[in-house]
């Protein structure tokens, strides 16, 4: 009995390590894609951070928010900490909502990601363009932020499926059993 529980505990730790390595790799790839080329691109770090946050507790979600936010600041050439603050708030909120109120479903994630991306885009527009009084500033919204936001939402689907797959494959047997019980008897 003792031997079995030790093996199970060791396997659980190993799975958790693998899971977090894969999540870290996902964030790194998202960062590199965001900094590649000069065309308008999706802000992949936002859906990636939110999807990871939905599968973790509040403190790990906060850590994911800090890291993704700082990476987003570097990729977008923004003031260090500017996006990090917003992503910490979003990631912790997503984690709490999934712990207490929401089921882990794509439609929920689409709504949460849309709100997070829209607010991030609006803050960007206001603080980096609108308040400086540039002429024709609405063009930035139409030609850069809106396409980028739409691309971000499109990118949410593969990222969501990937993160869910990683989280499920790396979950312990006990978690699987609990999930099955919840599905059977909600």
């Amino acid at each position: 009995m003792t031997v079995n529980s030790k093996v199970s505990g060791g396997r659980y730790v190993a799975l958790q390590v693998v899971k977090w390595i894969l999540f870290a790799l996902l964030l790194a790839v998202c960062f590199l894609v965001q900094t590649a080329g000069s065309t308008v691109k999706p802000l992949l770090l936002i859906p990636a951070a939110l999807c990871i946050a939905a599968h973790t507790g509040e403190i790990p979600a906060m850590a994911v928010g800090v890291i993704s936010g700082l990476l987003l600041d570097l990729a977008c050439g923004k003031l260090l900490g500017y996006n990090a603050i917003w992503l910490v708030v979003c990631c912790v909120t997503v984690s709490l909502l999934h712990s207490y109120l929401l089921q882990e479903k794509l439609v929920n994630m689409i709504l949460l990601c849309a709100v997070c991306t829209a607010v991030q885009g609006y803050l960007d527009y206001v603080f980096y363009y609108a308040i400086w009084g540039y002429e024709d500033v609405s063009l930035v919204y139409r030609h850069v932020m809106l396409p980028s936001g739409i691309m971000t939402m499109v990118a949410l689907l593969p990222i969501y499926l990937l993160v869910r797959s990683i989280a499920r494959r790396c979950a312990s047997r006990r978690t699987h059993e609990l999930e099955k019980t919840i599905v059977r008897d909600p």
Binding site: M62, A84, V88
Partner: peptide, 20 residues
């Protein structure tokens, strides 16, 4: 947990002000 998260948010604000 909530206090830790608030502390980190305050820290990030400090980083932002310093960067500025």
């Amino acid at each position: 947990k909530c206090k830790i998260i608030l502390f980190i948010l305050a820290l990030l604000t400090g980083v932002m002000v310093y960067a500025l």
